Measured scan of single mutants.
Amino acid sequence: TGIVNVSSSLNVRSSASTSSKVIGSLSGNTKVTIVGEEGAFYKIEYKGSHGYVAKEYI
């Protein structure tokens, strides 16, 4: 489990790349469930599926 550490919002992406499609966003202080790691990204549970967020903001 981690907490989103941004002042505005954090993009949730379809894969572990900054060039991948943005599938949603999370507000600061949102609790997320981390299910894996891939490079500079965490794989998280997101809306019944999975998404990826940059580690530096969790």
Score class of each variant (00 low, 15 high):
N5W: 05
E56W: 06
S9M: 12
K21Y: 08
Y46L: 03
G48N: 09
G51Y: 04
R13G: 04
N5V: 13
I44W: 00
H50M: 09
A54I: 12
I34Q: 00
S17N: 12
S14M: 15
S25Y: 14
I58P: 01
N29V: 07
S27I: 10
Y57C: 13
E37F: 06
N5R: 13
N29G: 15
N29M: 13
A16N: 05
A40N: 14
I23S: 02
E37L: 07
L26D: 00
I3L: 10
T1Y: 08
S8K: 13
G2N: 06
E37N: 06
S27N: 13
G36Q: 05
V22P: 06
K55W: 03
S8E: 13
K21E: 15
I23E: 02
A40L: 13
K55C: 04
E37C: 09
A40R: 09
K43L: 10
G51W: 02
Y57M: 09
S49W: 07
S49Y: 10
E56S: 08
G48S: 08
V22N: 05
K55Y: 02
S20Q: 02
Y52A: 00
S15F: 08
V22W: 05
S15V: 07
N11C: 14
A16D: 03
T33F: 10
Y57G: 13
L26T: 02
N11D: 15
E38W: 08
V35K: 06
R13A: 05
Y57R: 07
L10A: 14
G2V: 09
K43Y: 07
K21L: 12
R13S: 06
Y52L: 01
T30K: 06
E45A: 09
Y57Q: 08
G28S: 14
F41M: 05
V22A: 06
E45N: 09
S8R: 11
R13E: 03
I44T: 01
N29A: 10
G48W: 05
T1I: 14
E37V: 11
Y46F: 14
V53G: 01
N29P: 07
T30P: 03
G2T: 07
Y52I: 01
S49A: 14
Y42T: 02
K43N: 03
S20N: 03
G2I: 09
G2Y: 04
G39M: 05
S9Q: 11
A54V: 10
G39T: 03
Y57L: 08
E38G: 03
I3E: 06
V4P: 04
Y42V: 05
K55H: 03
S9L: 11
I44S: 00
Y57W: 10
V4G: 05
G24Q: 02
S19A: 12
S19I: 10
G2K: 06
K31E: 11
V6C: 14
R13W: 15
A54M: 13
T33W: 10
Y57P: 03
H50Q: 07
S7T: 13
V53F: 01
S14F: 11
I44Y: 00
S49N: 10
S7Y: 05
S20D: 04
V53I: 08
V6A: 12
L10K: 03
A16T: 07
N29H: 13
I58L: 07
G24D: 03
T33A: 09
N11E: 15
E45Q: 09
K47T: 05
I44Q: 00
I58D: 02
A54K: 10
E37I: 10
H50A: 07
Y57F: 15
S15D: 10
Y42M: 04
A16F: 04
A16Q: 03
N5Q: 09
Y46C: 05
G28M: 13
K43C: 09
V12G: 00
S17W: 04
G36C: 07
V53E: 00
S9I: 11
I34E: 00
T30I: 08
I3G: 04
I3T: 10
H50I: 15
G48T: 07
K55I: 06
T33H: 11
I34G: 00
K55F: 03
T1N: 10
T18Q: 13
I44M: 01
S9Y: 11
G51V: 03
V35W: 07
V6N: 10
E56I: 13
V35R: 05
Y57D: 09
S27F: 10
K31W: 14
K55Q: 06
I34T: 02
G24R: 02
K47C: 14
S14K: 13
N29Y: 14
E45V: 14
I44D: 01
F41W: 12
T1D: 08
S17A: 08
V32P: 02
S20G: 15
E56C: 11
I3F: 10
V12D: 01
V35S: 04
H50G: 04
K31M: 14
T1L: 12
E45R: 08
V4R: 04
T18N: 15
K47Y: 11
S27Y: 10
G51H: 02
S19K: 12
I3C: 10
E37G: 05
G48H: 07
A16P: 15
Y42S: 02
S7M: 09
T18A: 14
E38Q: 08
